[in-house]
Design a protein around this nucleic acid. Sequence first.
DNA 1: GCCGACACCGTACGCCGTACGGAGACGGTC
DNA 2: GACCGTCTCCGTACGGCGTACGGTGTCGGC
Lengths: 251, 251
Amino acid sequence: MATESATGGSPARTMDLLWRTGGDVERRPGPRAGLDVDRIVAAAVDLADREGLPAVTMRRLAGELGVGAMTLYTHVPGKGELVDLMHDAVLGEVYPEPPAGEWRDRLTSVARANWDLYVRHPWAASVGAGRPILGPNLMRKYELELTAVDGLGLSEVEMELVLTLVGGFVRGTVGGLHEKAAAERDSGLTEDEWWAATEPHVDKVFDPERFPTAARVGPVAGPELGGYSPERSFEFGLARLLDGIAVLVER
Amino acid sequence: MATESATGGSPARTMDLLWRTGGDVERRPGPRAGLDVDRIVAAAVDLADREGLPAVTMRRLAGELGVGAMTLYTHVPGKGELVDLMHDAVLGEVYPEPPAGEWRDRLTSVARANWDLYVRHPWAASVGAGRPILGPNLMRKYELELTAVDGLGLSEVEMELVLTLVGGFVRGTVGGLHEKAAAERDSGLTEDEWWAATEPHVDKVFDPERFPTAARVGPVAGPELGGYSPERSFEFGLARLLDGIAVLVER
DNA sequence: GCCGACACCGTACGCCGTACGGAGACGGTC
DNA sequence: GACCGTCTCCGTACGGCGTACGGTGTCGGC
């Protein structure tokens, strides 16, 4: 899953774009722009949602917008910055209502909101895993998530670490879901087709005496989990996390 | 973080290569090969370890091996397959000794072994997150990890899910470590330099009244965690996971 | 020596992001 | 209205990527 972020770009420019603080003078010389950052970002998000992040090339995006590829560079300095902008744009969707209820409910809300976000925008799970893209929507999301773990007797550092843990868990788990989709798209083979092609060779090389535990577990877990079940992993993992965090909260 | 895997390639060919079962006839017509899969994979792993996965291009790799780029295709069908082979190669390093001790020790062993592996081979954390690359070393690793969660009264599915949870946690957390390194390499800015460039803008747009919890937590957690501390996250998260899994094991 | 199989690899292609500079559209000033 | 500076748009070209294709030379079997 490609992570693309501002690379070699100016952090200052990126921040100006994220917060739309880049000198929006009312009247300025030069032609009226027929395009703006918001439209570019929205088109890019739409394309990424439909076909995945790799489909978002400047040429493709320009085509979708009916302009030349280089036109985009009038408004965004580069591909990486565009991806950052896309990321912050979709973060604006989370928490129409702030997380509420008991702490477990609130943390569950956080996990689910993140999960749902990444289900709607699969590409976003792999963006923003590095340096934080400090846009307005990320800040708001961060604030609301902090309130979800506030008042539990956790130190500031622990609050941060809990959010990092839950956020990372969701992102990592939903990544499996998207990898399956990407593998299918890229290879043209459904999971069943892939397994049909692969299994004969597994049967040829798999030695139950060499791998006794796997020989016992695989045939049971495999069919039930369908090779890998991100949703199942999410439910299971979230329960483990909540139980683990409870030890900390209720000490 | 780029995930590259067999894409559009033949699963059968990939499996043959992984297991080196592709018809190794002793004497065959044709010139003696001056190159083989093992050498290509080793050179690719070395290059990826030194400069990251994006540096592993066919041209670069061929240069390192002193051959033409197209020569590589005599031995591996494509870039994606090569990455799969690289992945399985490095998995062979884990568990010189099988995980031992109490279940917590064993699971900690599993987590640390994976962490260490991904510290040594940062690129590997993002490979294999999709369809499993079912090579001999992955099978062995899987077997040994299964034994680490065996005999605890967990069902086969639960065993699988625990390993998925721990494995995903490690991979996701170490990913942050590598994203920091990649961001630094790509942007040419150290984290401090990036923050020095970014902070003035954060100060300009950050409203403590709009983000009161963040205003309280950030200044404390930030300096202590240095923006993001993967190692700290690892220790904290592992403890939460073990506590959470304990509820399951000791019920 | 002939033939088929095979290793090697140069050329070329399509795709990618983007540097660079030309052309024309604007608003302010004279 | 003309001039000038600023700005939007975008074509061309470049270097980078993976790899299709086919030519050349090396082998072993007959």
